[in-house]
Design a protein around this nucleic acid. Structure first.
Lengths: 126, 126
DNA sequence: TGACTTCGTTTACAGATGTAATCTATCCTT
DNA sequence: AAGGATAGATTACATCTGTAAACGAAGTCA
């Protein structure tokens, strides 16, 4: 099944930090995730390593340390994860998924407005 | 990480058949999935077995055969998978996820209308 | 009633994942 | 320059997943 870029649960957490703070040193990732997840620093190092091997992360060496940065855009990964989720859980049907999220989420008035705007645009196009 | 009920990719396929045709015999599942996924019948039997062990599936024995039926509602699983997806990919923020899906999906006019209706209701409540 | 078929159970095995200890090379400090 | 701290690499290991063959019991057909 392995899609081109399959990022696991734990790896997503690491990548989210990377995308946010890029470029980052391992230590920064550790600072942000170790305590929160009760992970040892070794665990995070392993994940960084695996992400590099999967070519989701790239790094540039400065002296002894590495500076990591994403090799794949966050939006690409989101696209891929979303479509895989959609396929798996909703058989690929976006509408039911949307309805589910609309009904089960707390949305601010602004968010509702924005969504409505996107829907309008959508309608115009069809 | 294993949430109460973690259903894997392949298992979702099986469950989708079960929820749809419930109660089902193994053979029915095999008929619907084996060819499409290029799975041997043994593979599907394994998945049924594992789902029973995970208590996602229940069965009732009639003679030699089993009649399987879901032990967990589809909507419960959807809720759980959706929230896990949301957490993992969007850090739990529903609005960005919704926007993503609205923008990247093809929606019929009816679906758009329905979504708008749900949003209206949402707004009324806040 | 014996042979064949079929269904569920067991066993198998490789790769992915979560989780981490250990090793090694290197940089900083005294 | 020697010693300690540290970063990345290597090794470890249990569990989960995908995928399936093999096995044993039971129903079916001739």
């Amino acid at each position: 099944m392995a899609d081109a870029t399959a990022i696991s649960e734990a790896e997503w957490q690491v990548m989210n930090v990377v995308w946010h703070d890029q470029p980052v040193e391992a230590q920064q990732v550790i600072d942000q995730l170790a305590a929160a997840n009760n992970w040892s620093s070794a665990t995070i190092k392993t994940m960084l390593h695996r992400l590099v091997k999967k070519q989701v992360l790239a790094f540039e060496q400065t002296g002894k340390r590495y500076l990591y940065r994403a090799a794949i855009g966050r939006s690409d990964c989101i696209r891929q994860a979303s479509s895989s989720f959609l396929e798996r859980v909703f058989g690929g049907a976006a509408a039911p998924a949307l309805m589910h999220f609309v009904q089960t989420s707390a949305l601010t008035a602004d968010e509702v407005t924005e969504l409505r705007r996107l829907l309008d645009r959508k309608e115009g196009k069809s």
